[in-house]
Write a protein that binds this DNA or RNA. Structure first.
Length: 476
RNA sequence: GGUCCCAUCGUCUAAUGGUUAGGACAUCACCCUUUCACGGUGGUAAUAUGGGUUCGAAUCCCGUUGGGAUCACCA
């Protein structure tokens, strides 16, 4: 049978990393088996709907290369793919479930949380008195216009049992299961119910979701069983953590996919990194494109313990992706970050020195700030023991450097380096005694992307000579 | 609180009864070098804990501890 998985986000306007990873695994489980990956929007909670949120979902999935085979925008044989458009479809199934004995009509007021004297929430199992109302009486009250919900009926005793692909056999006592609402007063289904109906109707073979659903899965199974439907294969995923105690969440202000993009992380690197948060290929390789992952992914290698999201390792991996880019591709990506560079700056040369030195595109700004404007630096920057330079050396050498550069007609790194190197030789100095002061004069910074001659190329001849002259004046 | 789940270097993880417990990030040292990076070499660093089972346990069982989840007309 063809594998079918689904990503079913609710449109809340925020694609967080845990969610993205769930989508990735759903996608990979399908694709590794030549199956279909579908997109379904779960918007049954009208209060939480956020305008434009579905576009964020579409754009994110497209950007990382997770193409869906069926979805709200492209359709498919099992639509509609937006739950609010499926609204009328659920109620008949709910009433059917009542007939089959798997649910009942309930007229209770909405449950309120009880609090004890210390302000702690009292947790107790809900015993629904409406369960005892004869079906005919309940139907009469509904006919009379009384508001009602449909609630799941759980009469089973003993242990429920199912197998999860990552956690193994899960056994839970039926007694622990809450008789939750399936169809709300407003006629909308709850997640619990809509999920079962939609997954069945859409032919979903593998239900992939967070491990928080592990304890409520027996309730879904009961519904599948009562309807006489085949239970899906379950794949529950451990959470992605911010630290040992907290899940990554919107509330904590943790990075979303969008935030990472804005900081200059590449979609390919993000996908590669999160794929490895809870899954490993069993080899020592760790750089994978999504196409690679489609070939090698297997559910068996999914991990069951939570994983902490480590931005440091993601940053490293992003650096790997940046370095693997061709010079042309990197230039294209870096260009927007170089928009405010002065016109005389050789942006291509600059991009070339930047590429091995940045791990995120966002780091370009701090690396290039000295180009726009020479910082007002302290003269003791010219002192460097290892390079055997100090203020006196700089004072002596800078006019000579200016002279050499002034005469230089070929303005590229090799030519400049050769020229300054021969200056050092004729003066009987070490290379560093020429190059270090030159670099400081050109940049006004202790560390720079590239050496003296590389910076001279980036700045151009005129600006380079100008800065060296300023240094000579500064040193008096 | 009841129930369910989890537990290997700081972090992500490998090792499905027999390894000097492996790799990657981070960290430290050294090399390369025109500063800083990149690259290269090497080092520090882990089986939470107590009992079993076994010739042999990170691995299987039980307890303890620590953490997480769940118990909504939210998904």
């Amino acid at each position: 049978m063809k594998v079918r998985t689904r990503f079913a986000p609710s449109p809340t306007g925020y694609m967080h990393i845990g969610n993205l990873r769930t989508a990735l695994y759903e996608y990979l489980i399908a694709k590794a088996q030549g199956g279909d990956f579908l997109l379904r929007i779960e918007d049954t909670d009208q209060k939480r709907y956020v305008e434009g949120a579905t576009d964020i979902i579409y754009n994110t999935l497209k950007m990382v290369g997770m193409n869906w085979d069926e979805g709200p925008d492209i359709g498919g044989d099992f639509g509609p793919y937006v739950q609010s458009e499926r609204k009328d479809l659920y109620a008949p199934y709910a009433h059917k479930l009542v007939e089959l004995g798997g649910a009942h009509y309930c007229f209770c007021a909405e449950r309120e949380k009880e609090v004890d004297e210390d302000g702690n929430e009292i947790i107790c199992k809900f015993e629904d008195p409406c369960k005892k109302i004869p079906l005919e009486e309940a139907r009469a009250r509904i006919a009379a216009g009384e508001p009602y919900v449909i609630r799941q009926t759980i009469n089973q005793t003993g242990k429920s049992k199912y197998e999860d692909k990552v956690y193994g056999i899960i056994e839970i006592d039926y007694d622990e299961l809450d008789e939750g609402v399936l169809l709300k007063t407003d006629g909308f289904p709850t997640y619990n119910f809509a999920n079962v109906i939609d997954d069945h109707l859409m032919g979903i073979t593998h239900v992939v979701r967070g491990s928080e659903y592990l304890p409520s899965t027996p309730k879904y199974n009961l519904m599948y069983d009562t309807f006489g439907w085949e239970r899906p294969i379950y794949v529950h995923l451990p959470p992605v953590m911010k630290d040992a105690q907290h899940k990554l969440s919107k509330r904590n202000g943790d990075a979303s996919f969008q935030d990472l993009l804005a900081k200059g992380y590449l979609p390919e690197a993000i996908i590669n990194y999160i794929a490895l948060l809870g899954w490993n290929p069993g080899t020592e390789e760790e750089i994978f494109s999504i196409k690679d992952l489609e070939k090698i992914f297997s559910v068996e290698r999914l991990n069951k313990s939570p994983a902490i999201f480590d931005i440091v390792k993601l940053t490293w991996m992003n650096g790997v992706y940046i370095r693997n880019l061709s010079g042309e591709e990197f230039y294209r990506l870096a260009e927007p970050y170089l928009a405010d560079m002065p016109a005389n700056v050789d942006k291509r040369a600059l991009a070339a020195v930047l590429q091995p030195r940045v791990e995120t595109l966002g780091q370009i700004k701090e690396q290039t700030d000295f180009i726009k404007e020479l910082p007002d630096y302290a003269v003791d920057l010219y002192v460097n023991k290892k390079m055997k330079t100090d203020i006196e050396v700089a004072k002596a050498v800078l006019p000579e450097i200016k002279e050499v550069l002034f005469k230089q007609s070929e303005w590229n790194n090799d030519a400049l380096f050769a020229a300054l190197k021969s200056l050092a030789e004729t003066k009987g100095l070490k290379n560093g005694q020429i190059l270090y002061p030159a670099r400081i004069a050109l940049s006004g910074k202790e560390t720079t992307p590239g050496g003296a001659t590389e910076l001279a190329v980036v700045l151009g001849k005129e600006e380079s000579l100008n800065r060296i002259e300023q240094a000579i004046v500064k040193l008096g």
